[in-house]
Design a protein around this nucleic acid. Structure first.
Lengths: 267, 267
DNA sequence: TAACCAGGTTTCATTATTTGAAACTTGGTT
DNA sequence: AACCAAGTTTCAAATAATGAAACCTGGTTA
């Protein structure tokens, strides 16, 4: 009965779009209907509209829907305009060259980590495969360092939304464990992923903050337990900090909020 | 009065989204209003809804809208599911290594070229910067080879939509010039960009076709007139053809339409 | 200080669109 | 030939979108 989506028709249509994307593979009308809150003709019309609008692609051969090319076009602008990526790019390149390990740039989106850019030391390139990918905040290096520097009520809101799904034996599995970890991170100024998300995978992560202390994003250097250990990764902290500082500075000169106050903007 | 967008409210909202993206920079309400066909409160509400839905990001400091992070998330799925990129990736890597020049993968979207992936020989990575970018079909190598292998009525539809803006002294500036060029390309099986889009920039391009001859996309190797010439680029035709064939084959094994007939799918 | 103004936001009766139960098609199967 | 699952269309009722006008609000000018 009550409102389900908010934001009227547009919100509902976008919910359908998310639903299609969530399948992660081309999906049939019936499959969507089975788990849709919308009645048949309503869902049908949304799919038609979204397909018309190229937000979905329809394969008539297989009668399946997938996210459409218009999203790729739009995301190009979004990535270039609403993320740290363009500002961070040269610094990420330099960091990658210096450390010779996989490097990530991430931002917080809702209560999740959104990967924005990546440098893969060994087989270079790859990437869109990673950019746009989302991951859990409570068990990744970048996620935890971003949470650590949110203000107190924001962090609680985000903590409530974590699933605390246990991926490995090291995964933090409760809000309290996470709070303790965040407190440590605030002390140190950086954090680790101690095989919390994937066995054998470890990383050091550094937040990117504005001069006012607001969280912009995070950087990390990732490796494996077979190649190094946490102490080894900790050696990257200075260069990570420098890189983060440079990104902060460039973001300031570019156009990020929280920077140019009314006074400096004025005239 | 008459319908403007089709697709009702959702179509209108997406039109606003496009309008914001088209600015290519954070944009204020007033600027949008000035060139919007919607009255003030209507535009206002669309912006609110889209912002709510994270399709737009609002910067309260500067009172500006930009495309939002939700697009980046959604595009990740779209790129991975509705483009040739995941199938082509290893072949593009190999091609890039072999030729040591910049390599592009593109698809046709509306009447435009949509760049899907890229390998930059010298400074590797970059990319999302390119992936999602659109370009003209009538004056790029990838654009022309894709047009050349469309069926006759499809190609005419697309030709009608070309702007024939003159970028350089070599730009094809009429439908007839383009038709002649496409005919040549059909003969050869591949095409060139002879500094038609940017002075000094040349490329060889190869279409990627299904076994039934339908256009899936195109590959190109790009260089500069200071480093090589068309004859030099033509040497890459064999490896381009091989690469395109491999992509065709893999696309077949993966899941592209026009391939698995009811018989092979059915059991 | 007061009047003014541009840019942005809200109201609310009118209008147009969305909604979904039910009926209908279609292609494939018993 | 009857049946069935999956997808598509209809149409009156319910709902949401619309936009002219009024209203804020912070900054600027007289």
């Amino acid at each position: 009965m009550g409102r389900v989506t908010g934001d009227g028709t547009v919100g509902k249509a976008l919910e359908v779009l998310d639903q299609v994307a969530a399948f992660g593979r081309p999906v049939r009308f019936g499959e969507l209907l089975a788990q849709s809150e919308f009645p048949k003709p309503t869902l049908y019309r949304f799919l038609q509209t979204l397909t018309n609008q190229q937000m979905l692609a329809y394969d008539p051969e297989r009668q399946t829907y997938s996210p459409g090319l218009r999203l790729v076009r739009l995301a190009h602008t979004a990535w270039d305009q609403s993320t740290l990526a363009p500002v961070a790019r040269p610094h990420l390149d330099a960091l990658s060259k210096a450390v010779g390990e996989t490097v990530h740039l991430a931002q917080l989106d809702h209560a999740q980590v959104l990967y924005i850019d990546k440098r893969n030391a060994n087989n270079p390139v790859q990437m869109y495969s990673q950019a746009g990918k989302v991951g859990p905040a409570y068990c990744t290096g970048v996620g935890k360092v971003m949470l650590a520097f949110l203000d107190e009520d924001a962090v609680e809101t985000v903590i409530e939304q974590q699933s605390f799904h246990v991926f490995t034996e090291h995964t933090l599995d409760s809000a309290d464990a996470l709070r303790a970890e965040l407190s440590d991170i605030r002390q140190n100024g950086y954090g680790f992923d101690r095989e919390e998300h994937e066995p054998g995978i470890i990383c050091v992560a550094m937040p990117i903050l504005t001069s006012a202390g607001r969280v912009l994003g995070a950087l990390s250097v990732t490796s494996t337990t077979s190649r190094t250990n946490l102490a080894g990764l900790e050696a990257y902290v200075p260069i990570l900090r420098e890189t983060a500082d440079k990104i902060t500075r460039d973001a300031q000169n570019w156009s990020f909020p929280d920077y140019q106050t009314k006074e400096t903007t004025g005239i």
